[in-house]
Structures are given as C-alpha cells and as structure tokens.
C-alpha cells in the first residue's frame, strides 16, 4: 500500500506516447482500426435496438397514460398526439368513495412495517447462524433452507385458517407479522452469505473493546452489512408493493385495499374501461418502487454482487 501521508508527487518519467496521426498509420494498422470501429458500432447498435424493445412497453405505458381513451388503441406508437392529464385526474378520484391517496397510504401501512420487520428479524437470525455455534444448528439451517424450496401455495390454506382463528382477517397483520419472524428464508440466506464474507476480526476487536454481543451486532455488523441489508429491504419493498395475492386473500373491505387491489378494482367497476386512468394509476403505482430503487441502487448492486461472489 502506498503511504497517503506522503505528498511527493509522482512525476511521470515516461512521456505518454503521442497519438499517431492517421496519415502515419500503415495500411495494415488502418484496416485494423477501421475493423475495430465497425465492430463497436455493430455491437452498440444491436444493444440499443434490443434495449429499446425491452423498455418499450414501459415507455408505452407512460406515454399512453397521457393519451385519450379514443387514441389508446389507434396507434402502437407511445407518443401521445393530444396529451392530457385527464387520466390522472379520473384515476386519482376512482370509482369508489376513496381517492387513490387512501390506497397509497394503505400500501404503505403494509410495506413499511413489513420492510422494517424483515430487516430486523432476518439480520438477527442470520447473525445467529453465521456467527454462533449452538446445538442443532446444522439441522435448523437445513430446515431453513428447505423452506426456500417450499411452494407458497402449500401453506396458503393452513395459514388462512390460522389467521382466521386469531381473528386477523381483514387486517394487515397476516402480511406484516410473519415478516417480523424472519419468515422469508431467502433474505436470511442472503444475509448469512454476506456475513460469511465479512472477516471476524472486526467483531473480535469490538468484543475486546468491551462490546457485548448485541452491541457488536448494532455497531459493527449492521454497518458492514448495510449493502446487503439495503438489497433485502429493496426486494421486500418491491415484492410487497407488487403483492396481489396476499391482500386479495386477507383484505375484504375496499377502504383497506392496497394499490395492487385498487388497480384491479377500477377494471372491475365500470363496463367501459377507462384505460387511461388505469394506466395513469399504474404509472403512479410504479413510482415508489422506481424511486426507492434508484436511491438505493449503489448499495443494492454492491449487496447482491458481494453476497453472490464471495458466498
């Protein structure tokens, strides 16, 4: 490692080679250079075309949300001819007594406690598995991993019956409470893999410094775990925002509908669909996930790549 305190500037000994002017290149060199340029332009053109095709539905969605209903299916091109925000106005008021704001708030009432609960419980469980020895650890870990392979549908009915007995139907509890008990093995597994890549010396140093197990977790492990934790929270945020089946099963009052159900509601309610208002609300429904993703992008990518390669 070079000393950072040492301010002696490194004077370049070798002058950088002046770029050869094209006139001085031999025909062979010229040919190679031309071929490299051609290759690059083909590569990038292909990437741009494929990328555009992939992102086009999203562009269309945004564009169409500003179209009139009549224009909607007239042209597959995404740019609206007569841009209007009527879709947003109609969509926001909805066909129900509630505005879309209610549904946003409802969604947040599920998402926020669930994300926090997942972050806390998954970290605690992962810390236990990654750093401590206890009787039955291997078996418990095997069971945890086995639940990863368990299809969701299998547990739907027993869970429903259980929550009905608890009187939790038509509340958000069936969606929130499991998250506080590290219900999703995937997140636990992801955090364990990431933790295994963190050297233990830092934690040992903290213990020598007088930190107890919990303080080590809070002051040392969690800050180092942050990239992975951000990924966990982001995944949970997006999955919960997009979750349709959970609320569909447990929530029966329209007033309590989250966004995912509310969007469906506007399709059911009228005979002639107001496509532009549905699309407008879909765009709004997408926004939180997109905003959160771009805010957390750096940590997110660090989190999934480190966990993946070093695990």
């Amino acid at each position: 490692m070079t000393s950072l305190s040492d301010p002696t500037p490194q004077t370049p000994v070798v002058e950088t080679m002046p770029a050869k002017s094209p006139a001085r290149l031999s025909p062979q060199e010229l040919k190679l250079r031309r071929r490299a340029r051609l290759n690059a332009s083909i590569r990038y053109s292909l990437l741009i075309v494929v990328g555009f095709i992939m992102v086009y539905p999203l562009l269309w969605l945004i564009g169409a949300s500003f179209k009139t209903n009549a224009e909607m299916f007239a042209s597959p091109w995404f740019w609206p001819e007569n841009p209007t925000i009527q879709g947003y106005i109609d969509g926001w008021t909805t066909s129900t007594p509630y505005t879309f704001a209610t549904f946003f708030i409802n969604s947040m009432q599920i998402v926020i406690p669930k994300v926090i609960g997942t972050a806390i419980s998954a970290t605690l469980v992962a810390y236990g598995f990654a750093r401590f020895h206890f009787p039955g650890k291997r078996i418990l870990f095997a069971i945890l991993i086995a639940t990863l392979l368990l299809p969701d549908v299998v547990t739907r009915i027993p869970q429903y019956l259980l929550f009905r007995e608890l009187g939790w139907l038509d509340t958000y509890l069936p969606m929130i409470v499991p998250a506080w008990f590290a219900w999703e093995a995937f997140f636990v597994f992801m955090l364990i893999q990431f933790m295994r890549s963190i050297p233990r010396e830092m934690e040992e140093a903290a213990r020598v410094d007088g930190a107890n197990t919990f303080q080590v977790l809070i002051y040392i492990v969690v800050p180092m775990l942050l990239p992975a934790l951000v990924s966990v929270m982001l995944f949970q945020f997006m999955w919960t925002m997009n979750d349709f089946l959970g609320p569909l099963i447990y929530i029966s009052t329209v007033e309590k509908y989250p966004i995912s159900l509310a969007l469906k509601l506007s399709i059911d309610a009228t005979e002639a669909f107001n496509w532009n208002s549905i699309l407008a609300m879909t765009v709004l429904a997408l926004t939180p996930s997109l905003v959160v993703f771009f805010l957390a992008q750096k940590s997110f990518i660090e989190g999934i790549s480190t966990g993946g390669t070093k695990g």
Binding site: P199, E201, E204, A205, A206, R207, G210, N212
Partner: peptide
C-alpha cells in the same frame, strides 16, 4: 468476557472498523 479482562489487542490485519473514521475507531 474479553471486554471485562482489562486487555487490549492489536490484530494482524488491523481490524479497524471500516465504517468509522479514525477518531471514532480510537474512541470506540
């Protein structure tokens, strides 16, 4: 526990807390 033994330890790979500035590393 280590914290109650009245010891301090210096590790081979320094084991500084990567997310804390030097000042906070020292005073942790």
């Amino acid at each position: 526990v280590p914290g109650k033994r009245g010891i301090a330890m210096v590790f081979q790979n320094y084991a500084l807390y990567p997310h804390m500035k030097v000042r906070r590393n020292l005073s942790f």
